[in-house]
Design a binder for these strands. Sequence first.
DNA 1: CGTTGCATTGAGGAAAATCAAGTTGAGTGG
DNA 2: CCACTCAACTTGATTTTCCTCAATGCAACG
Lengths: 212, 212
Amino acid sequence: MEILGDVVSNKRKIQRGDYLHRTGTRFQTLFAVRRGSLKTSVLEEDGRQQVTGFYMTGELLGLDAISTEIYTCDAIALEDSEVCEVPFAKLEEISLSIPSLMHQFHKIMSREIVRDHGVMLLLGSMKAEERLATFLLNLSQRFVIRGYSASDFNLRMTREEIGSYLGLKLETVSRAFSKLQDENIINVDNKHIQINDMDRLRLKMGHSSCAA
Amino acid sequence: MEILGDVVSNKRKIQRGDYLHRTGTRFQTLFAVRRGSLKTSVLEEDGRQQVTGFYMTGELLGLDAISTEIYTCDAIALEDSEVCEVPFAKLEEISLSIPSLMHQFHKIMSREIVRDHGVMLLLGSMKAEERLATFLLNLSQRFVIRGYSASDFNLRMTREEIGSYLGLKLETVSRAFSKLQDENIINVDNKHIQINDMDRLRLKMGHSSCAA
DNA sequence: CGTTGCATTGAGGAAAATCAAGTTGAGTGG
DNA sequence: CCACTCAACTTGATTTTCCTCAATGCAACG
């Protein structure tokens, strides 16, 4: 992963709300998040919009653009952030002489596909509360990996963005938060989330029908 | 693409209903469909299952397994089929000496990601009828590319499998078919589908609210 | 201190799931 | 060849879930 340093040409700061890239513009670089967080979203002809992912430190954006050499989504900073530009042509070139780099890159792309399949499963077969539980546990997991608390963190995105990602309306997200709080599984104070009972939250992910 | 011939070691026949690979088994090869069609599906701990994709001639399976070197889904033949085994290690090896092959491979993986984002959009923001219209048009498109009729084809999968892919119950799929038939947009005779009005079917995809 | 954006909550309605019959059609065996 | 079986499909009635619309709360900011 550190080999990526050879490929990384320059860093770029990006303020909350700014676009990192826009749908339809020419693709040349991937972006690795160094600090902060971003969301990607796709826009349909008829105005419908959907958030397709949230990205934190260390995660890679732009993989979708390789196929057409045009970005297929918008990437927007959720807070003041910093990214590394990874020129894709250069990455491919260097890959030729460093097989392990190429292999790692393939794994990263593959992981993105697996991740998307997980979201498809969520969108296709889970109820609102299960979706939110899954989402919170996923975030929690990713915070832990980065050395933050698994059970106490601040959301960087709005209810509407969460809803868009989970295929729900913002009111439904809000209600699901309230319900989990009423059951004492989590504490919600606006964007500040505390998970009180990780196990019961995990149960929520599974089969809501069996739980009380 | 023909370069792939160098990598392809052997063909494999697989009968309707048979597994091409199973979740959890060791990954070594990708599979290119030569004839027939397959579905992939993921199984959750609690028994929930979801179809994550349908694959036709020329399409590539197994990309999700690269990340963990273990297949993350089941692949099952929808009809008697034939696939080529593409040993992944060999593909990576050859890529090193044929940059264009590597580049093509990256595009294929990227296209899979874009495709998944499309499904996420469908699952997250479309109503039943819109989902089915989108699905039929996608199939139609893929048949055309392969030299078959765009407006007259046979489904290889059951209503339940379609529903699982689209995040709907089989009854809902059936009703959506019936509705599109009542509106004279398509003809349905069990698995035999005829599209009478491609334009109105496309309209269905978009904003159902505006249509009658 | 009003404005603005985000969040919560409630009431009512629409969409899809669930439950429950029936129908059809292909394959099987008498 | 016909009855039987079984799986897939269709259709209707009811229930659940979520969306929509609307009102209100609340904190940040100029």
